[in-house]
Design a protein around this nucleic acid. Sequence first.
DNA 1: GCGACAG
DNA 2: ATCTTGTCGC
Length: 225
Amino acid sequence: MRAWPATVEGLILEQEELARASPPRLRPTGDPAIGGCFVCFARGKTGPGEAGDPGWAGAAVVRRGRVLASAVVTGKAGAAYEPGLLALREGPLLEAAVLELAEGPDVLLVNATGRDHPRGAGLALHLGAVLELPTVGITHRLLVAAGDWPADEHGATSAFHLGGKPVGYWLRTRRGTRPLAVHAAWRTDAEAAVALVGSILGTTRTPEPLRQARQSARTARASSL
DNA sequence: GCGACAG
DNA sequence: ATCTTGTCGC
C-alpha cells in the first residue's frame, strides 16, 4: 500500500516514481463493475481554495447501467489547488470515498488526468496506484498534452499526445457538447481507456459511474449546509 | 497585448 | 472546483 505524500517535494518524487512504474495492463472482462469518484467543495467560492477547505467526495459502482453501490464521505482539502499537484488537495478524500464502497469496482473512473501531466503521473494514475485498481481519467480539458477535437458526432474520437506518445483520447459523448478527455492512467493505455468509456456511453454527457458519484457528493454537500 | 495550467 | 441566461430536448 502506498501513502499520500503530504508535501510538494514528496508528491513530486512520488509522481516521478509512479511515472516510471509499469504495472500489468488491465485485462478487459465481459461486463466490468465500473466505479467513479468525484469531489466537490463549497459553492460560492472561487479560485484555488486553501488547505482545510471542507470537501465532499462521492463514489459509485455501476454495472450494465445499474448502480451496485455508492458512498460519500466528508473531509478537508489537503492543500490549495495547484496544476500538477491536485493529488495533494483531493487524493486522500477520493481514496476514502472509494474505500467506503460496499462493493469494489474492477476499474475506476477518476475526475483528473493520468499520463497527461508534467511528470507523467496525474491524480487518476496516482489514485489507481494507491488503491491498487486500474483507473481511467476523465476531464474537460487537457493539462499539458495536445490534440484536436473529433467531429461533432456521438462516439467520435481523436487522440491527444504528450512527448510524441498518445496519452488519451477526446471522446464526443454527446452531439453538440464539447468532448470529454479520456486519459490513460493506472494500468490503462489510451486505447483501453477510450474503449472502456466508449462502451458505456448513454444519453448523458458524463459517464454513469462518474455522474452517480458527482450526484452523491453534491447531495451530501446540499444536506450538510 | 496574448496566452495560461486537471479540480 | 464554482459562478452564470437562455435555450433545446426528452
